[in-house]
Design a protein around this nucleic acid. Structure first.
Length: 523
RNA sequence: GGGCCAAUAGCUCAGUAGGUAGAGCAACGCCCUUUUAAGGCGUGGGUCGUUGGUUCGAACCCAACUUGGCUCACCA
């Protein structure tokens, strides 16, 4: 009957998990990635998707374990562009990424550096998985029995994999791989298995042979297509989505769902999430820093709630772009509208309301706030920040109706707005307001007349009423005998050094009479 | 070759359980006799890729097709 209430995909999947896996004491939801480079926002889609489903299951009263697997016993295949000391890293190719040094000096090793980036950011968006480190697990021989089992299952596994392979695997293939104990590299060939725990391999670089014991060796691991289903059983995974590369027919999910049966388990409930693209960062980051956009990068421009909102309001199986361009303005507006509907401040039909409410709830980092945030259009906020040279506290102080419980949220929004306007906004949106100490701008005769007339008009303004000010502006143009356009242009030049700007009356009102006069009176 | 996704207003896209087609931008108009980039209100604009089918009713479900994109058939 719960299904009746489920309108959001996260709830629908939670229902599906309960339906297909039965009533359980504990549901295990899993996600994971190989930290072989910067973990990007596309990888985050999987994490947040699982988090949303976890949240949904918990709200249905279920006990849930959310695990995140760092597949960090993988091979270092190539040196990413723009890593420090590439020639040093080069010497570590073919070793496990946990044995590669972190040349950025963030962490003990290369994999750990990439992991830390994520682990430090996830709490900001309210995501708290239990991290499982596969290198540590394999190296402590935790999976010895499972590897033995896989060796026993070799013929069945090969027959599954061969259904889709262009070049069939033959008997010389083994479900495990071995790193050389001499070099740590994976350039090895398995020669034989003794039917128990003994595996003999040859180091192809040194042409040396060695026999290892799966119960004690740190060097053996399962191949991915066997490793994944093994861990489904080991952890009892009930739900794990995956990218489209895994979910294609013949992809790793497809073979894993068959192989997992050999291990005595069943495939988890899953769905395919699509990739995400990036929009509006062209030329803004130096091309030398690469194209990768991380969760941290997104959080520079989107508040934690907005970041969750991007994913909670989008169906996971469709591609979408994370924008750093003008779409940012619209997305903040969308979020604010969603919030207003949640709090009943914006009319909305019933069907849409149910969805909007759920999206809003799922977008929150912690508990759902009792009151809406301070809703100020993003673009207006950008202008206020520019008027105040990025001084967040000054901007908040200038907004007299901000309530106590809105300040923190607003502060975060201000920081995002400032990053956006200074880093990603089109040139047209940017300005800085002159001060009494600024250099004067060269104006022609007409412009000077206009500015002087405006200055004396503004002096008689009460400093509050925008309508009055608007009238004064036109009066000034008439008095100076210049075209309105000439006055606007000259005034913008004097105030912000550009020919155009925000609507003048409101703009001057925001800047404040005193400061406007301080600038204009110099002319 | 297999699989998945998309095609809706001039543009970018919503439409997440079949019930009279939506938003933002752009355009135009108004709030404001007045030319400028913040706010608000309003107007115009779509045979929902094509053809069939199911249904009282289809953008939505089914089948086929057209066009575009991604992905697997290496590794993980």
């Amino acid at each position: 009957m719960e299904q009746q209430n489920s309108v959001h995909w996260a709830d629908i999947y939670a229902d599906k998990i309960i339906r297909e896996k039965g009533d359980k004491e504990l549901y295990t939801c899993a996600s994971g990635i190989t930290p072989s480079g910067t973990v990007h926002i596309g990888n985050f889609r999987e994490i947040i998707s699982v988090d949303l489903v976890v949240k949904a299951l918990r709200q249905k009263g279920k006990n849930v374990r959310f695990i995140y697997s760092w597949d960090d016993y993988d091979v270092f295949r190539k040196v990413p562009k723009n890593m420090p000391e590439p020639q040093l890293l080069e010497t570590y190719l073919r070793k496990p990424i946990t044995l590669v040094p972190d040349t950025t000096k963030r962490a003990d090793n290369y994999a750990r550096g990439n992991e830390l980036d994520v682990e430090e950011k996830l709490p900001i968006v309210g995501v708290y998985p239990e991290y499982l480190y596969q290198a540590q697990r394999y190296r402590s021989s935790l999976y010895a029995e499972q590897m033995k089992k896989a060796l026993e299952l070799k013929p069945q596994i090969i027959s599954v994999l061969n259904q889709y392979r262009a070049e069939p695997l033959d008997d010389s293939w083994w479900p495990i791989a071995v790193f050389s104990s001499f070099t740590d590299k994976d350039n090895t060939t398995i020669l034989s298995w003794d039917g128990q725990y003994g595996v003999t391999y040859r180091d192809n670089d040194l042409n040396k042979e060695e026999t290892i014991d799966l119960r004690t060796t740190p060097y053996a691991k399962l191949h991915w297509r066997v490793d994944w289903p093994m861990r489904w059983v080991y952890e009892g995974v009930d739900f794990e989505p995956a990218g489209k590369d895994h979910h294609s027919k013949g992809g790793s999910f497809d073979t894993s769902r068959q192989i997992v049966e050999f291990f005595g388990g069943h495939a988890p409930v899953s769905f395919q999430y699509d990739f995400i693209s990036i929009k509006g960062r062209g030329g803004k980051i130096s091309s030398s820093s690469g194209e990768v956009v991380s969760l941290g990068d997104v959080l520079e421009v989107y508040t934690p709630e907005l970041t969750r909102f991007l994913f909670a309001s989008t169906r996971p199986n469709t591609e979408f772009a994370i924008s750093f361009d003008l779409d940012v303005l619209k997305l903040y507006e969308d979020y604010d509208n969603c919030e207003r509907r949640y709090f009943g401040l914006l009319p909305c039909n019933e069907k849409k309301l149910a969805m909007e409410k759920r999206v809003y709830e799922l977008s929150q980092v912690g508990d759902v706030p009792k009151t809406p945030g301070y809703q100020i259009p993003f673009r207006h906020l950008c202008n206020l920040l520019q008027i105040n040279s990025g001084d967040v506290d000054a901007v908040i102080a200038s907004l007299s109706d901000v309530k106590e419980d809105q300040i923190e949220r607003l502060r975060t929004r201000c920081r995002c707005a400032w990053t956006w306007i200074t880093t990603f906004a089109p040139e047209d949106f940017r300005f800085s307001v002159a001060t009494a100490d600024s250099e004067k701008v060269a104006l022609d005769e007409e412009g000077l007349k206009a500015v002087r007339a405006l200055c004396s008009k503004v002096a008689s303004w009460d400093g509050k009423d925008e309508k009055d000010l608007s009238q004064l502006i036109y009066d000034a143009a008439a008095e100076a005998g210049v075209e309105n356009t000439a006055l606007f242009t000259a005034t913008y030049m004097a105030l912000i050094g550009k020919e155009k700007g925000p609507k003048l009356a409101g703009f001057m009102n925001t800047i404040g009479k005193e400061r406007v006069l301080a600038v204009l009176s110099k002319y």
